[in-house]
Nucleic acid binder design. Structure first.
Lengths: 177, 177
DNA sequence: TGCCATGCGAACATCAGTGTACCGTTGTGA
DNA sequence: TCACAACGGTACACTGATGTTCGCATGGCA
């Protein structure tokens, strides 16, 4: 019940950061007063959403075996359903700029990427670029799912093949072997 | 000078859509009153920013030879510097949902992509996915440039190689020839 | 049945953003 | 030097969002 509240609030505020608390309450099917009881101020709500998102993402990351060969595949499937929360953490105005917990999410992922640049990942692009590319893929996949353009079960394949192989057919690609 | 105002307003509102007009005016180095003289209301400012962005993007697109083999390369270099404007059109809350001019931007690009799916682009991904992937690449490249992480002259290469070839080294890739 | 907790709506005060009017300053051209 | 336009700042009214209080309804639970 409260989980539903946090979910809806996240998606409403993500779609329109200027949405009023009344809009949020209505979307969550809850009274504006009740919302105030749970979250005394607007920024308290924002912080609660961020903390909840952090809990979920940290929990998801902790379940990934970063040593496994298919760590990235695992990451994609786990993070895909959490994409609204991740987006909230990374794109919401007034967040992230200094939050220690948010900033702490990247390093393990960057480590993983850097390690894989010895095998599966190309070395001529920086790790942060590869990470952002992965995140972009997850983001647009989720957007497409919400819009009804993409079947949820197709999403991981779309993200992973695009990430690893790109969208080129390979006919004009430079030989990198 | 007015061009600078539109640029600054775009980037300020893009970074924080809840920014007050006072913030916008200050960032643009102009008085709030003067801002009001030029744009009587907040939504007038938003519409002006959207129209200006549309003019710039349409103009850029009109200069691209969609029949050329390197149409995508041309697109990337031209759209990269316009990325804040494109982002404003596509991501700003309350825009796009019905604007005819904005919706008219996609079809020619989708046509181009669909055509190239006969040669340079893979056929097992829908055209809209490829378009979004391209746009994501431009977006994150611009972000990286602004953050100082990416040299502007490197950006097109990053975007294009990632788009066409992906970030995989190719060692584990399925053979698609 | 009576009690208590929880949620909701109405009403109110407050505040920040917005829009407007007025005035002083600057600078440019006749 | 004068007139005029453009700009910025101050001050004020208005509006919508916000936060608070109060009272009522609902729904377990003893």
């Amino acid at each position: 019940m409260s989980v539903h509240l946090l979910q809806t609030a996240t998606s409403v505020l993500l779609r329109d950061p200027t949405a009023s608390l009344g809009d949020v309450a209505k979307a969550a099917g809850v009274g504006r007063t009740t919302l105030h009881k749970r979250f005394p101020t607007r920024s308290a709500l924002i912080r609660a959403l961020a903390n909840d998102a952090l809990d979920l993402v940290e929990s998801a990351l902790s379940q990934v075996d970063f040593e496994a060969d298919d760590a990235i595949e695992d990451l994609v499937t786990r993070l895909l359903v959490l994409e609204p929360r991740v987006s909230f953490l990374t794109r919401f105005p007034g967040l992230e700029k200094d939050d220690v917990r948010i900033l702490a999410l990247d390093p393990p992922l960057l480590d993983l990427i850097t390690r894989l640049q010895g095998s599966r990942l190309r070395r001529d692009l920086p790790a942060w670029w590869i990470l952002r590319t992965l995140q972009s893929g997850l983001y647009q996949a989720w957007e497409a799912i919400v819009a009804g353009r993409l079947a949820p079960l197709d999403a991981p394949r779309f993200v992973l093949t695009t990430l690893f192989e790109g969208v080129g057919s390979g006919v004009g690609a430079a030989d990198r072997t």
